[in-house]
Computed example of a mutant assay.
Amino acid sequence: MSWYRRLPRTSLRVRRTRSGFTLIELMVALALLVIVTMMAFSGFRYLTAVMNRTITTTTARENLSVVMDQLTKELREVTSVSGGTETNDISTSTPLAYRANYGITLPTWTSASDSSGGLGSVISSPATTPASPTTLAPIVPALGSGVTYTFSTTTGAQPNGIILEFFTIDTSATPAKHRIRYSLTAPMVGSTYAGLAQGFWAVSSYEPCEITYCNNTWKGSSWTTESPQPMTDQVVTAFTVTRPLWSPNVLQITLEAQVPGLGRTGYNTVRLIGLVTVRQ
Protein backbone atom coordinates (compact mmCIF):
# COMPACT_ATOMS: atom_id res chain seq x y z
CA MET A 1 0.00 0.00 0.00
CA SER A 2 1.41 3.36 -1.05
CA TRP A 3 2.36 5.78 1.72
CA TYR A 4 1.17 8.72 -0.40
CA ARG A 5 -2.40 9.72 0.17
CA ARG A 6 -4.03 12.22 -2.09
CA LEU A 7 -5.72 15.12 -0.30
CA PRO A 8 -9.33 15.84 -0.99
CA ARG A 9 -10.11 18.61 -3.44
CA THR A 10 -12.05 20.51 -0.81
CA SER A 11 -8.94 20.81 1.39
CA LEU A 12 -6.90 22.20 -1.51
CA ARG A 13 -9.61 24.75 -2.27
CA VAL A 14 -9.67 25.92 1.35
CA ARG A 15 -5.90 26.30 1.37
CA ARG A 16 -5.96 28.35 -1.84
CA THR A 17 -8.61 30.77 -0.51
CA ARG A 18 -6.67 31.35 2.68
CA SER A 19 -3.33 32.06 0.98
CA GLY A 20 -3.99 35.82 0.08
CA PHE A 21 -6.37 38.82 0.07
CA THR A 22 -9.32 39.40 -2.13
CA LEU A 23 -9.53 42.43 -4.44
CA ILE A 24 -12.23 43.98 -2.26
CA GLU A 25 -10.02 43.67 0.83
CA LEU A 26 -7.14 45.38 -0.99
CA MET A 27 -9.40 48.20 -2.17
CA VAL A 28 -10.75 48.79 1.34
CA ALA A 29 -7.24 48.80 2.82
CA LEU A 30 -6.04 51.23 0.15
CA ALA A 31 -8.99 53.55 0.76
CA LEU A 32 -8.29 53.55 4.51
CA LEU A 33 -4.61 54.28 3.85
CA VAL A 34 -5.51 57.23 1.60
CA ILE A 35 -7.91 58.63 4.22
CA VAL A 36 -5.36 58.33 7.05
CA THR A 37 -2.64 59.91 4.86
CA MET A 38 -4.89 62.85 3.94
CA MET A 39 -5.81 63.38 7.60
CA ALA A 40 -2.16 63.33 8.61
CA PHE A 41 -1.19 65.74 5.80
CA SER A 42 -4.03 68.13 6.67
CA GLY A 43 -2.98 68.10 10.31
CA PHE A 44 0.64 68.72 9.37
CA ARG A 45 -0.33 71.57 7.04
CA TYR A 46 -2.48 73.17 9.76
CA LEU A 47 0.30 72.89 12.34
CA THR A 48 2.75 74.41 9.86
CA ALA A 49 0.37 77.33 9.22
CA VAL A 50 -0.07 77.89 12.97
CA MET A 51 3.70 77.80 13.49
CA ASN A 52 4.29 80.26 10.62
CA ARG A 53 1.64 82.64 11.96
CA THR A 54 3.14 82.45 15.46
CA ILE A 55 6.63 83.19 14.12
CA THR A 56 5.36 86.10 12.01
CA THR A 57 3.35 87.57 14.90
CA THR A 58 6.27 87.22 17.29
CA THR A 59 8.63 88.88 14.81
CA ALA A 60 6.23 91.78 14.28
CA ARG A 61 5.76 92.23 18.03
CA GLU A 62 9.53 92.22 18.55
CA ASN A 63 9.89 94.88 15.84
CA LEU A 64 7.36 97.13 17.53
CA SER A 65 8.76 96.49 21.01
CA VAL A 66 12.26 97.57 19.96
CA VAL A 67 10.88 100.89 18.73
CA MET A 68 8.61 101.47 21.72
CA ASP A 69 11.30 100.64 24.29
CA GLN A 70 13.93 102.88 22.72
CA LEU A 71 11.50 105.68 21.95
CA THR A 72 10.06 105.90 25.48
CA LYS A 73 13.53 105.75 27.02
CA GLU A 74 14.81 108.62 24.85
CA LEU A 75 11.70 110.73 25.37
CA ARG A 76 12.36 110.75 29.10
CA GLU A 77 15.66 112.50 28.33
CA VAL A 78 14.10 115.34 26.34
CA THR A 79 15.81 118.65 27.07
CA SER A 80 14.26 122.07 27.43
CA VAL A 81 17.69 123.70 27.23
CA SER A 82 18.53 125.73 24.14
CA GLY A 83 22.03 126.95 23.43
CA GLY A 84 20.53 129.80 21.45
CA THR A 85 22.79 129.28 18.43
CA GLU A 86 21.58 126.01 16.91
CA THR A 87 19.74 125.94 13.63
CA ASN A 88 17.94 123.15 11.84
CA ASP A 89 20.35 123.30 8.91
CA ILE A 90 17.52 124.27 6.57
CA SER A 91 17.08 127.46 4.56
CA THR A 92 15.16 130.18 6.43
CA SER A 93 12.66 130.24 3.59
CA THR A 94 11.16 126.95 4.78
CA PRO A 95 9.00 126.33 7.85
CA LEU A 96 11.64 124.02 9.32
CA ALA A 97 14.00 126.89 10.04
CA TYR A 98 11.54 128.41 12.49
CA ARG A 99 11.08 125.30 14.58
CA ALA A 100 12.39 125.35 18.12
CA ASN A 101 15.62 123.42 18.58
CA TYR A 102 14.76 121.96 21.97
CA GLY A 103 11.96 119.91 23.47
CA ILE A 104 9.54 118.03 21.19
CA THR A 105 9.06 119.77 17.88
CA LEU A 106 7.05 117.23 15.87
CA PRO A 107 4.17 116.82 16.12
CA THR A 108 3.64 120.44 17.13
CA TRP A 109 1.61 120.93 20.30
CA THR A 110 -1.28 123.38 20.40
CA SER A 111 -3.63 124.37 23.22
CA ALA A 112 -6.53 124.68 20.79
CA SER A 113 -6.97 120.97 20.05
CA ASP A 114 -5.25 117.62 20.15
CA SER A 115 -2.50 117.30 17.54
CA SER A 116 -1.27 114.14 15.87
CA GLY A 117 1.23 112.87 13.35
CA GLY A 118 1.01 109.63 11.44
CA LEU A 119 1.10 108.02 8.02
CA GLY A 120 -1.42 110.48 6.59
CA SER A 121 0.86 113.36 7.61
CA VAL A 122 3.86 112.25 5.58
CA ILE A 123 2.58 110.93 2.23
CA SER A 124 1.74 112.89 -0.89
CA SER A 125 0.07 110.03 -2.72
CA PRO A 126 -2.58 108.78 -2.53
CA ALA A 127 -4.36 111.95 -1.45
CA THR A 128 -5.61 111.81 2.13
CA THR A 129 -8.92 113.03 3.52
CA PRO A 130 -9.27 115.36 6.53
CA ALA A 131 -8.74 113.89 9.97
CA SER A 132 -11.66 112.39 11.83
CA PRO A 133 -12.27 113.05 15.56
CA THR A 134 -11.18 109.48 16.36
CA THR A 135 -7.95 109.32 14.34
CA LEU A 136 -6.77 112.97 14.37
CA ALA A 137 -4.21 112.14 11.67
CA PRO A 138 -5.45 112.42 8.06
CA ILE A 139 -7.22 109.31 6.79
CA VAL A 140 -5.28 107.26 4.24
CA PRO A 141 -7.38 105.67 1.48
CA ALA A 142 -6.96 102.07 0.36
CA LEU A 143 -4.39 101.48 -2.36
CA GLY A 144 -5.26 100.16 -5.77
CA SER A 145 -3.59 97.16 -7.37
CA GLY A 146 0.14 97.68 -7.85
CA VAL A 147 0.10 101.09 -6.10
CA THR A 148 2.42 102.04 -3.20
CA TYR A 149 2.68 105.10 -0.96
CA THR A 150 4.63 108.14 -2.14
CA PHE A 151 6.30 109.81 0.83
CA SER A 152 6.67 113.58 0.82
CA THR A 153 10.10 115.13 0.82
CA THR A 154 8.57 118.19 2.49
CA THR A 155 5.03 118.52 3.78
CA GLY A 156 4.68 121.82 5.59
CA ALA A 157 7.03 121.46 8.55
CA GLN A 158 7.35 117.69 8.27
CA PRO A 159 9.87 116.39 5.70
CA ASN A 160 10.94 112.89 4.73
CA GLY A 161 8.37 110.89 6.63
CA ILE A 162 9.23 112.30 10.09
CA ILE A 163 6.55 111.39 12.63
CA LEU A 164 8.39 112.38 15.82
CA GLU A 165 11.27 114.78 16.42
CA PHE A 166 12.81 115.87 19.73
CA PHE A 167 16.10 116.99 21.27
CA THR A 168 18.24 115.59 24.07
CA ILE A 169 21.57 116.46 25.70
CA ASP A 170 24.26 113.87 26.31
CA THR A 171 26.17 114.71 29.48
CA SER A 172 28.20 111.50 29.77
CA ALA A 173 31.36 113.26 28.51
CA THR A 174 31.47 116.56 26.69
CA PRO A 175 27.89 117.90 26.67
CA ALA A 176 26.38 117.47 23.21
CA LYS A 177 22.92 118.15 21.89
CA HIS A 178 21.20 115.47 19.79
CA ARG A 179 18.36 115.84 17.31
CA ILE A 180 16.43 112.58 17.22
CA ARG A 181 13.97 111.70 14.47
CA TYR A 182 11.69 108.71 14.03
CA SER A 183 10.26 108.39 10.52
CA LEU A 184 7.81 106.16 8.72
CA THR A 185 8.79 105.20 5.20
CA ALA A 186 9.21 102.32 2.74
CA PRO A 187 12.41 100.72 1.36
CA MET A 188 13.70 102.61 -1.67
CA VAL A 189 16.72 102.38 -3.96
CA GLY A 190 17.10 105.93 -5.15
CA SER A 191 13.60 106.84 -6.28
CA THR A 192 12.60 103.24 -7.01
CA TYR A 193 10.39 101.27 -4.63
CA ALA A 194 12.29 98.26 -3.29
CA GLY A 195 9.86 96.90 -0.74
CA LEU A 196 7.66 93.83 -0.58
CA ALA A 197 5.57 92.99 -3.61
CA GLN A 198 1.89 93.70 -3.03
CA GLY A 199 1.10 90.00 -3.21
CA PHE A 200 2.96 89.51 0.07
CA TRP A 201 1.17 92.24 2.04
CA ALA A 202 -1.11 90.99 4.81
CA VAL A 203 -3.76 93.43 3.60
CA SER A 204 -3.35 94.16 -0.10
CA SER A 205 -4.91 97.65 0.14
CA TYR A 206 -2.54 98.95 2.86
CA GLU A 207 1.20 98.95 2.38
CA PRO A 208 3.42 97.78 5.27
CA CYS A 209 6.17 100.33 6.00
CA GLU A 210 9.30 100.49 8.12
CA ILE A 211 10.36 102.85 10.90
CA THR A 212 13.73 104.58 10.56
CA TYR A 213 15.84 106.30 13.21
CA CYS A 214 18.23 109.23 12.91
CA ASN A 215 20.36 110.79 15.65
CA ASN A 216 22.23 113.96 14.58
CA THR A 217 24.65 115.81 16.86
CA TRP A 218 25.15 119.56 17.05
CA LYS A 219 28.79 120.27 16.22
CA GLY A 220 28.97 123.99 16.93
CA SER A 221 27.78 125.45 13.65
CA SER A 222 25.62 122.74 12.09
CA TRP A 223 24.17 119.28 12.65
CA THR A 224 25.98 116.10 11.66
CA THR A 225 24.55 114.41 8.58
CA GLU A 226 23.95 110.80 9.60
CA SER A 227 21.39 109.11 7.39
CA PRO A 228 18.23 107.52 8.82
CA GLN A 229 18.65 103.79 9.52
CA PRO A 230 15.85 101.17 9.50
CA MET A 231 14.71 100.03 12.94
CA THR A 232 12.11 97.51 11.79
CA ASP A 233 11.33 95.12 9.00
CA GLN A 234 8.69 96.19 6.50
CA VAL A 235 5.80 95.27 8.81
CA VAL A 236 4.54 98.57 10.27
CA THR A 237 1.08 99.68 9.14
CA ALA A 238 0.56 102.47 11.68
CA PHE A 239 2.84 104.79 13.66
CA THR A 240 0.93 107.60 15.30
CA VAL A 241 2.00 110.15 17.91
CA THR A 242 -0.75 112.20 19.57
CA ARG A 243 -0.28 115.23 21.84
CA PRO A 244 -3.41 116.13 23.86
CA LEU A 245 -4.35 119.78 24.16
CA TRP A 246 -4.40 119.59 27.96
CA SER A 247 -0.64 118.99 28.31
CA PRO A 248 2.42 119.61 26.09
CA ASN A 249 4.33 117.01 28.09
CA VAL A 250 2.16 113.98 27.34
CA LEU A 251 2.40 111.81 24.23
CA GLN A 252 0.36 108.80 23.21
CA ILE A 253 2.26 106.51 20.86
CA THR A 254 0.56 103.83 18.77
CA LEU A 255 2.49 101.23 16.80
CA GLU A 256 0.67 98.68 14.67
CA ALA A 257 1.52 95.80 12.36
CA GLN A 258 -0.74 93.51 10.37
CA VAL A 259 0.36 89.92 9.76
CA PRO A 260 -1.25 87.26 7.53
CA GLY A 261 -3.77 84.89 9.11
CA LEU A 262 -3.79 81.10 8.81
CA GLY A 263 -3.22 80.03 5.24
CA ARG A 264 -2.86 83.73 4.31
CA THR A 265 -6.60 84.11 4.78
CA GLY A 266 -7.44 87.36 6.55
CA TYR A 267 -4.99 89.04 8.89
CA ASN A 268 -4.14 89.61 12.54
CA THR A 269 -3.28 92.98 14.07
CA VAL A 270 -0.41 93.45 16.51
CA ARG A 271 -0.71 96.76 18.36
CA LEU A 272 1.36 98.49 21.05
CA ILE A 273 0.15 101.66 22.79
CA GLY A 274 2.35 103.74 25.08
CA LEU A 275 1.65 106.86 27.14
CA VAL A 276 4.75 108.91 27.96
CA THR A 277 5.11 111.99 30.17
CA VAL A 278 8.26 113.95 29.38
CA ARG A 279 10.09 116.50 31.53
CA GLN A 280 10.60 119.34 29.08
Rank of each mutant, 00 (worst) to 15 (best):
M1G: 11
M1E: 13
S19K: 05
G20R: 07
F21M: 03
L23Q: 03
I24Y: 04
V34G: 10
T37F: 05
F41C: 05
R45Q: 07
L47S: 15
L47T: 14
M51D: 14
T56S: 09
D69G: 10
Q70H: 05
T72H: 00
E86L: 15
T87F: 06
T87M: 07
I90Y: 12
S91W: 06
S91N: 14
T92K: 11
T94Q: 01
N101D: 15
D114E: 10
G117K: 00
G117I: 05
G118A: 08
A131I: 05
P133Q: 12
A137V: 14
V140Q: 00
V140H: 00
T150Y: 06
S152W: 02
T153S: 13
A157T: 13
A157V: 03
A157N: 14
P159N: 02
N160Q: 13
L164Y: 07
F167W: 08
T168Q: 08
T171M: 04
A176Y: 04
R181G: 01
Y182L: 04
L184H: 12
A186K: 05
P187I: 10
V189K: 06
G190F: 03
T192H: 02
A194F: 09
A202T: 07
V203C: 08
Y206A: 02
E207C: 06
C209V: 04
Y213H: 07
Y213G: 08
K219H: 06
S221W: 07
T224P: 07
T225Y: 09
M231N: 09
T232N: 03
T232L: 03
D233G: 12
D233V: 00
V241K: 02
T242P: 08
L251Q: 15
L251P: 00
I253Q: 03
P260Q: 10
T265K: 08
T269L: 01
R271W: 11
G274F: 05
V278F: 01
Q280M: 12
